[in-house]
């Protein structure tokens, strides 16, 4: 099912924002491939650049440096219909279902607009039947009860389903879902995630799923991959079970051991890693070398604060950008040889 050439590829992507005289380096040297039909989760804390990465993937903003390839084509070179086709193929679902829907429009208007705009339907009757189909697809059933409603008549979970339906109107291939469940109540989060999973399988969609919640990432991307970001860089990437069960990068380990678990005995017995510093560095003053070094319990002076580690094999199965894990992996290799 997975093709040899990736559906989406980021190569050396940087994104800088200007704030007065300052330059904020939000993304630095992001390279990643997403295969057709794959789920890739971007995980990290606020300010790590995960949302910016999502926006670049969806073509909403352009990278400062580096290239984005979609279906093998350099996105920055696309013009006219070719660019519009790319923008149709990649759709984004935003975090806040209260802010992302126009309160003055019924679901029919909201969902039929892109259909007419992109000339995917010829008559209102055709549009209506397609909108009913979309509502059915996102489990807003029976769709006839929903099609003429306004957003304020829906719950948060139902609104988020409308956002998903809207993303699906133009038959996308890739969906960037930016924290789609973080504003939805616990009891209905899972049904929303299950709907997304179903869609992914049925429509053979590819997902870039952005979340700060590693447990949600593990649940949703069980057969996919997780990329952990810290201060604008990917620090670890691997399959979801590998990254969550055998985290390699000290930052991933700190995240995983810090998270409480929904089981009193398990969470109270968890081994914690303590950091050297509680302070999250400012994006205006990103630490030299490995950006995690001021907080890292494994910090090696004159190495970690000097040289930038690259994503490299580790003793585990994921790749990590860490001098210490790279060295241990190297030792293990030479000993085997």
């Amino acid at each position: 099912m997975v093709n040899s050439s990736p559906l989406l590829s980021l190569q050396g992507v940087h994104k800088h924002f200007k704030a007065g005289r300052n330059t904020i380096r939000v993304l630095q040297d992001i390279s990643l491939d997403v295969a057709q039909g794959e789920i890739l989760c971007l995980v990290g804390e606020s300010g790590c650049g995960k949302t910016t990465t999502g926006k670049i993937i969806a073509g909403l903003i352009a990278p400062t440096a580096g290239k984005v390839f979609f279906e093998g084509k350099d996105v920055s070179q696309l013009r006219g219909e070719a660019f519009r086709a790319y923008r149709r193929a990649v759709q984004i679902v935003h975090q806040d279902p209260y802010a992302s829907l126009n309160p003055t429009q019924t679901l029919y208007r909201m969902l039929s607009f892109p259909l007419f705009r992109h000339r995917m339907v010829r008559s209102p009757a055709e549009a209506r039947s397609r909108v009913l189909e979309l509502l059915q697809l996102v489990d807003l059933t029976p769709p006839e009860d929903f099609i003429d409603k306004f957003p304020h008549q829906l719950s948060g979970g139902q609104r988020q389903r409308v956002s998903i339906a809207r993303a699906l109107t133009v038959n996308p291939r890739l969906i960037v879902a930016d924290e789609p469940v973080s504003m939805v109540d616990v009891s209905i989060r899972i049904s929303l995630l299950n709907t997304l999973s179903d869609l992914q399988r049925r429509l053979r969609l590819t997902f870039v799923f952005i979340t700060h919640d590693l447990a949600v990432a593990r649940y949703f991307a069980w057969e996919g991959r997780i990329a952990v970001m810290y201060l604008g860089r990917i620090v670890e990437i691997g399959s979801a079970p590998d990254v969550t069960a055998q985290p390699q990068h000290p930052y991933t380990r700190a995240l995983i051991t810090s998270l409480p678990e929904p089981d009193p005995e398990v969470t109270r017995r968890k081994q914690r890693i303590s950091l050297r510093s509680e302070d999250i560095p400012s994006l205006l003053r990103i630490p030299s070398g490995c950006a995690f070094h001021p907080r890292c319990p494994w910090h090696v002076p004159n190495v970690c604060d000097v040289a930038l580690p690259e994503l490299a094999p580790t003793e585990g199965r994921s790749l990590a950008a860490c001098h210490v894990t790279a060295q241990t992996a190297h030792h293990a290799q030479t000993q085997k040889a």
Binding site: G157, S187, I188, R189, I190, A215, A245, I256, E261
Partner: peptide, 21 residues
């Protein structure tokens, strides 16, 4: 509620939402 919350360590539990609102 307990059945709807994903865990991080251990087996990946199958989760179920509560119907309705």
């Amino acid at each position: 509620l307990m059945r709807a919350v994903p865990n991080l360590s251990g087996r990946r539990a199958e989760l179920i939402s509560i119907q309705g609102s």
